[in-house]
Design a protein around this nucleic acid. Sequence first.
DNA 1: CGGCAGTTTGATGTTACTCAATTTAAGTGG
DNA 2: CCACTTAAATTGAGTAACATCAAACTGCCG
Lengths: 237, 237
Amino acid sequence: MQAGWPCVTCPNRKAGFCGALLGTDDGAECALQPSWQHYRGARAGEQVLVSNRETDNVLMLCSGWAFRFMQATNGRRQIINFLLPGDLVSVAAMFENPPRASAQAITEIRLSLFQRSEVLSRLSSNPFFSEVVSDLWLKQVTTVEELVFVLGQRSAEERIAHLFLHLMRRIAARNVIRDHRYRLPLRQQHIADAVGLTPVHVSRVIGAFRDRGLIELSGGVLQVLDPAELERIGSLS
Amino acid sequence: MQAGWPCVTCPNRKAGFCGALLGTDDGAECALQPSWQHYRGARAGEQVLVSNRETDNVLMLCSGWAFRFMQATNGRRQIINFLLPGDLVSVAAMFENPPRASAQAITEIRLSLFQRSEVLSRLSSNPFFSEVVSDLWLKQVTTVEELVFVLGQRSAEERIAHLFLHLMRRIAARNVIRDHRYRLPLRQQHIADAVGLTPVHVSRVIGAFRDRGLIELSGGVLQVLDPAELERIGSLS
DNA sequence: CGGCAGTTTGATGTTACTCAATTTAAGTGG
DNA sequence: CCACTTAAATTGAGTAACATCAAACTGCCG
């Protein structure tokens, strides 16, 4: 447990997971943390959750980007979802131990660790918290089912456009966006693993987007030049 | 509400969803049903849940086969999961109204309908029930994430083999299986929509499986001739 | 016996993968 | 600040996997 590391950036501190769990809806200092919570950091690329390995902690991402994924024996991996500050690293891992999927940091990150037994015990005693968890389940299922739809039925262009739109929405919910510019610290390999394509093909598709004046992606920043067209390609309806 | 339609076939009657919800773990007659539950049937092909259309009911499949799916404007559809007797038609639809996905009967089916408000109110008051629902969430997420993995990373043969294995396991959990023969009332169109391929290609792959002496699929019955090889192709690890 | 839905087969087209080389960008130490 | 190193992105050529279109075939039911 480190002192002087308030979970300020965590959008869940107030009404979200942390707030409901700790009963600090009023935004009380995270310094008032219970003994069954502590923090840790991790460097870019570090694996913070390992599939099939038991752990007593429930992880929450406080800062930085990460992703959750499943790995095949042949080395190929599928990214299930990207994790932004305030996300539970794995909703399922609250209830299953060991977890089926792994998680890895993209940038340098900070994590909040809760002891699972304590979290679970609060589920029954704190109705507000259980409602928040219910909501997490729903969001998780919705997102993943949408991903199934995208992977099963849509072309490479549509998949990538959809991923961008999805991430844009999530970022915009946390930050103010100016000029349609989004901080996106992803390698093309990440995009490829998320939408089920090869990095080479991802490069070509993004290149085509660029040539059409749709987007500009470099230096970890996505700039959307033609939001309407991107929406037309990537939207599901 | 029909009389004389006991939910005998429903494997959830005892320890599962229905049992926990109604408090009939002892297997009491379903005739003792509350006023907020009733039954209905549906014919093969009938749509029993419509996306974006409000409904006050939570649906549970009592008999027959169905599936849940998302539809694109261009007509293509993605089957999210197949529904077997005892399955909730949509776990998410317990909490979101209207639902995002639709559901359709494959065979003739029978459904049990619970009033949503009553179901939800039992979540807080009945800890055993909320634990069962937690389990449903976990299973649902696990299955769908596995599907993401399959659609994103595996070939046509692997996808289809995986679907067969998945369905076989689920059927075997409900019925005694003799001679590796499974009742599978699916058209190739269903398989195609579930694994993100065209019916034509599904036909070719199944034909190849047949030629290799792997399986025999006709008349709604899947017979597995070489379980080990099917497992080798379709298993995820 | 005919009609229809579902499946199979063939020929051809398209999308995305593979392999390999090249360019660009990002660090690193002098 | 610049040469050097290394990772990431781009580009090209050839190939494999799956889609598309259309025709033929099968089994089932009236």
